Amino acid sequence: MPHAPLLSTALAGVLLLPLAAPGTAAAAPAAAFRVLLPAPTGEHPVGTTDLHLVDGTREDVWAGGPRELMVTLWYPARADAGRRAPYLTGAESEFIVRANGLDLPPDVLHRGVRAHARLDVPPARTREGFPLVVLSPGAGHNRTWFTSLAEDLASHGFVVAAVDHAHEASPVEFPDGLRHQEYTPDWALGAANRAEDVSFLLDRLTGADPAWRWSRVIDASRVGMAGHSWGGTATAETLRAEERVDAGINLDGPYYPPVLEEGLDKPLALVQNGQGREWHGTAELWPRLEGWRQWIRLRGSGHSNGIDQGLVTERLGLAEELYSPEQWRDLYGDVGVERGLELVRVYGLAFFDHHLRGGDQPLLEDPEGFHPELVVVDPGAE
Rank of each mutant, 00 (worst) to 15 (best):
I218D: 01
E314M: 04
D366H: 06
P185E: 04
E373K: 01
V223E: 13
L268E: 10
V217N: 06
H280A: 13
A20W: 06
N100M: 15
T57L: 09
Y256D: 05
P40H: 03
V172R: 08
W145V: 15
R216P: 00
P287G: 11
Q181P: 00
A39H: 08
N193E: 13
G224R: 10
R67M: 12
L289I: 15
V172F: 04
T144C: 03
P106Q: 11
R58C: 03
W230P: 00
E237D: 13
D334F: 04
L364T: 07
L19H: 05
A192V: 12
R222G: 03
V54N: 00
A99M: 07
G310C: 02
Q309Y: 05
R297M: 13
D246A: 15
G157C: 05
G65W: 11
D219R: 13
A226N: 05
T41I: 09
G112V: 14
P287H: 08
A220H: 09
E338V: 11
D55Y: 04
P29Q: 12
A211C: 13
W286F: 12
R127H: 10
L69N: 07
F200L: 12
R78K: 15
D50Q: 02
D334W: 09
V35H: 06
P123W: 09
I218W: 02
P5F: 10
E338G: 02
L16V: 12
I249T: 08
I96D: 08
G138V: 14
P18D: 06
G274A: 01
P210L: 12
D186K: 06
G138M: 13
A4E: 14
L109M: 13
A79Y: 06
P18G: 09
R329A: 14
E43Y: 00
N250W: 03
L88Q: 10
L202F: 12
V223P: 07
A319C: 06
H165S: 10
G207I: 14
Y323D: 08
R222Q: 09
A162Y: 01
L363A: 01
L102A: 13
V159W: 05
Y323W: 13
L16E: 09
A150I: 04
G207R: 14
E261R: 05
M70Y: 00
L135E: 08
P106E: 15
P137H: 11
P254T: 04
A269Y: 09
V113G: 07
P258E: 02
G263W: 13
R34Q: 14
T313K: 07
A241N: 04
V108G: 08
V97E: 14
P105D: 11
A241Y: 01
H167P: 00
G190N: 12
L104N: 05
S324E: 12
S8G: 14
W328I: 10
R293P: 04
W214G: 01
A247W: 01
L239V: 04
P45R: 06
R339E: 12
R315E: 14
W214C: 03
D378K: 14
I307V: 15
E368Y: 02
R315H: 08
L104R: 09
L6K: 02
P175N: 11
L6N: 08
A188Y: 01
A39F: 00
E262Y: 03
G333K: 02
L7M: 10
A81W: 05
R299G: 11
S301C: 07
G82C: 13
M70K: 02
D152L: 13
D246Y: 00
H44R: 15
W187P: 00
L285P: 13
D203S: 15
R67G: 05
G101Y: 03
T41F: 06
P40A: 05
L251C: 11
P185T: 05
L343P: 02
